[in-house]
Design a binder for these strands. Structure first.
Lengths: 111, 111
DNA sequence: CAGTATCCGAACTGATACTG
DNA sequence: CAGTATCAGTTCGGATACTG
């Protein structure tokens, strides 16, 4: 058993899923690992995610310490999202996910 | 863009999430990688998953080619679940997930 | 620009009972 | 043993409109 922030998990995999599971978080980590991005840049990168879901996911990741939200007090507003060191610690997983795609569906990748 | 089984994905990570995302699939892959298991053994291993959800997840993984369902025609029934080679191809990801837990919450693991 | 608010249907999850 | 069936509650996800 693993205890983390007062919750119990059967195995490490379960905990990992809790932190980066869901439809969007792994992909957000992937993009943010390449480049710090502003809110609307993320919106444009992912035509399929709504602003609502994007805000929600980013907030959860910020709460969990994976993402740093930097707000510039200016008009028009400017907010930048980047990975914390903790967020970067998931990169081996994200890279493994990407590598899996390269290995197993490489023939179907179109640039 | 990646095309896989008539669906399009922005990046490999997105496709990986589609195949092994969700709350249970990664954990099921983890357990089945260690040992072929019968339905009720899985039920006992995961007190938090209901039979309904377990059936549903296993069916999806079978449909996607990750899991092999072997039914013995006998009474009482016996069904064994194991990983296909395709299912095993996700092991680098699952192992990375587990390793993350070992590295980052090791202090909180109780056997 | 970077979000909120509201509404709504779909999907997930759980409890319980039942079946070949 | 290995599931299904049913009901109900919660969360997810998307469309649209609005705000500081």
């Amino acid at each position: 058993m693993i205890t983390y922030r007062d919750k119990e998990y059967r195995c490490a995999v379960e905990l990992t899923i809790e932190l980066i599971g869901g439809k969007w978080k792994a992909i957000l980590l992937w993009e943010l690992s390449k480049k710090t991005l502003r809110f609307n840049e993320l919106v444009r990168l992912f035509p399929n995610i709504t602003r609502k879901m994007l805000t929600q996911q980013l907030k959860e990741m910020e709460r969990d310490g994976l993402v740093l939200r930097k707000e510039y007090n200016q008009i028009p507003p400017k907010v930048e999202y980047s990975l914390t060191n903790f967020g970067k610690s998931f990169m081996p997983i994200i890279l493994a996910m990407n590598q899996w795609g390269v290995d197993y569906v490489a023939g179907n990748i179109k640039e």
